[in-house]
């Protein structure tokens, strides 16, 4: 097992409360890793620190062998890690297509001078990206709403856009914070199928989810967090049998 992402002794406090107490974990390359744990275990904070929203107080993060400890979100995207949000976020006045295009990396036309002069490189990159964006939209069945502003989409479609735009960045690793939360069962199935297909294409996925049946079906390994650190990891059944995990979720037996 080669870890794509290694986290060592990651700590982070907010206002004197230590939320991450020393996270030590590896995400194997090519896996769909599930991150579960009771409320307040620090899963979302872990994602937030990992994706560069807050710098860690201590610890080290290696992504594909590269030290990315304390890197900014934009640098992490370049290093190959993209995230989604628990509550689907977007740019209200931009269309689905613009969201997809925006996540395309290495567009020379985002430099001021190239944008004004309209260089050939920028034009060619724009064409390539737009082909790709349309393909992603078709794949996620968003092509019929491609010119709609993101605010005009249903909750489920917004979740699909989150996944689609992450794809546009050609990530090695996608961090998904509850990709199925608040989505109807049919769409949950659809999203699950998309995730498996992406994984088959070689993208490593790490997701936070509360639907245990889904975790059981999609994820291996499953990492359980509690009290700001990793409790155990392993296959779903193995983890579910674990006495510590049961106690973390249900409380200690007297």
């Amino acid at each position: 097992m080669i870890p794509l992402l290694s986290v060592r002794r990651m700590t982070r406090s907010f206002y004197g409360v230590q939320v991450l107490t020393g996270v030590d974990l590896d995400i194997p390359e090519g896996s769909v890793t599930g991150l579960i744990g009771p409320n307040g275990a620090g899963k979302s904070t872990f994602f937030n620190v990992l994706s560069g929203l807050y710098p860690p107080d201590g610890g080290r993060v290696l992504l594909a062998g590269q030290d990315v400890t304390g890197a900014k979100p934009a640098q992490l995207v370049k290093a190959g890690m993209v995230r989604s949000f628990q509550l689907a976020r977007g740019f209200p006045k931009l269309s689905v297509f613009q969201h997809l295009m925006l996540y395309g990396q290495a567009q020379p036309g985002e430099r001021l001078w190239a944008a004004i002069t309209g260089t050939k490189a920028a034009r060619q990159r724009e064409e390539a990206l737009s082909e790709e964006a349309l393909a992603v939209a078709r794949r996620l069945r968003l092509d019929h709403v491609i010119d709609n502003p993101i605010t005009a989409l249903s909750g489920g479609q917004k979740k699909l856009v989150e996944i689609g735009r992450a794809l546009m960045a050609h990530p090695k690793l996608i961090l998904l914070d509850e990709p199925m939360a608040g989505v109807n069962p049919t769409l949950t199935e659809e999203i699950a199928a998309h995730l498996l297909a992406l994984n088959a294409d070689g993208i490593t996925i790490c997701l936070i989810e509360h639907d245990m049946a889904l975790i059981r079906r999609l994820c291996n390994p499953v990492i359980v967090m509690a009290e700001g650190r990793k409790l155990v990891e392993g296959g779903f059944d193995e983890v579910a049998e674990n006495r510590d995990v049961q106690e973390a979720y249900l409380g200690r037996r007297q």
């Binding site: 994706s51 560069g52 979100p73 934009a74 370049k78 993209v82 925006l102 985002e110 735009r165």
Partner: peptide, 9 residues
């Protein structure tokens, strides 16, 4: 903030 997560400078 989200623009940063999209990799924009």
């Amino acid at each position: 903030e989200l623009a940063g997560f999209a990799g924009k400078p």
